[in-house]
Design a protein around this nucleic acid. Structure first.
Length: 257
DNA sequence: ATGGCGTGGTAGCCACGA
């Protein structure tokens, strides 16, 4: 099974690139973030034409998450029941695979803007409730994959310039602690678990020729329980979409089981 | 590096992203 996560920064703009990537990469599941469109606008027909089911939890202008899947999507959850939130940042479903039932969670963690800001506190609060919801979710599901844009670079090697970014949003100690608290539920960062030393990024700033100079961060992650890591054959980051005309600033992160 | 870009609103040279 091949699963990918991709923050597309507007599905309206990126739908052609998403279709092209699906045809080329042939994932069984593709989790999207920042669709920036209402549910009524989601291109279910285009996705269906490629042979996939799709579910979407979206809103106008901001946020929005979707799961595109070869498998039937069961027990669909929109947002966390323990956290009142206008912002559409989570969608989850269960799939029945050759490896058994797996709970799939697609997240778009708040950006946090800057350390100490209201948005930063909202990010930490969101993560606290997410961790508590996830802990409960893991009582019901043995196999679970949580993938999306976490807006956290877990370690210094996940940031192109740790000195310049020191104590900044995306790398601050509290954000990294929140990320570790999620892993402490019994999960692994699949890319790092299988590539302990490798430096690869999933996001590059549009400004300052960020991609050309490889000024990036690894902030998009696929977390799984340890049993799934045991069955994982490959984790990778596909930089190709970031090279195209009018790219998203993020690129797909992939796991193969 | 502190902004230079990109997207999507709306009529604010706006908000937001990371």
């Amino acid at each position: 099974m091949k699963l990918a996560t991709w923050n597309v920064n507007s599905l309206t703009v990126r739908i052609g690139q998403v279709e092209d990537w699906i045809k080329k990469a042939q994932p069984d599941l593709l989790l999207l973030q920042e669709t920036k469109q209402e549910n009524i606008k989601f291109p279910h027909d285009a996705i269906s034409a490629l042979g996939y089911k799709s579910i979407h939890n979206g809103q106008k202008t901001y946020n929005g998450v979707a799961i595109i899947s070869k498998y039937e999507l069961l027990d669909v959850q929109h947002n966390m029941p323990n956290f009142e939130d206008e912002q559409k940042r989570l969608i989850a479903a269960t799939i029945d695979t050759e490896h058994g039932k797996i709970r799939i969670v697609c997240v778009y963690v708040p950006n946090g803007q800057s350390v100490g800001s209201d948005k930063y506190h909202y990010k930490l609060d969101w993560l606290k409730h997410f961790t508590s919801w996830l802990k409960n979710e893991m009582l019901s599901f043995t196999d679970i994959i949580i993938a999306g844009d976490f807006n956290i670079a877990p370690q210094d090697i996940d940031c192109h310039d740790p000195e310049a970014w020191k104590d900044n949003v995306l790398v601050s100690a509290k954000e990294r602690e929140a990320f570790q608290s999620i892993l402490a539920l019994g999960l692994l960062d699949s890319f790092r678990a299988t590539n302990p030393e490798e430096i690869q990024y999933s996001w590059w700033d549009y400004r300052m020729a960020g991609f050309r100079r490889n000024h990036g961060m690894r902030i998009d992650h696929i977390l799984t329980n340890k049993q799934i890591i045991g069955k994982t054959t490959l984790t990778s980051i596909d930089k190709e979409p970031r090279k195209s005309e009018r790219p998203s600033d993020h690129t797909p992160v992939i796991i193969e089981i």
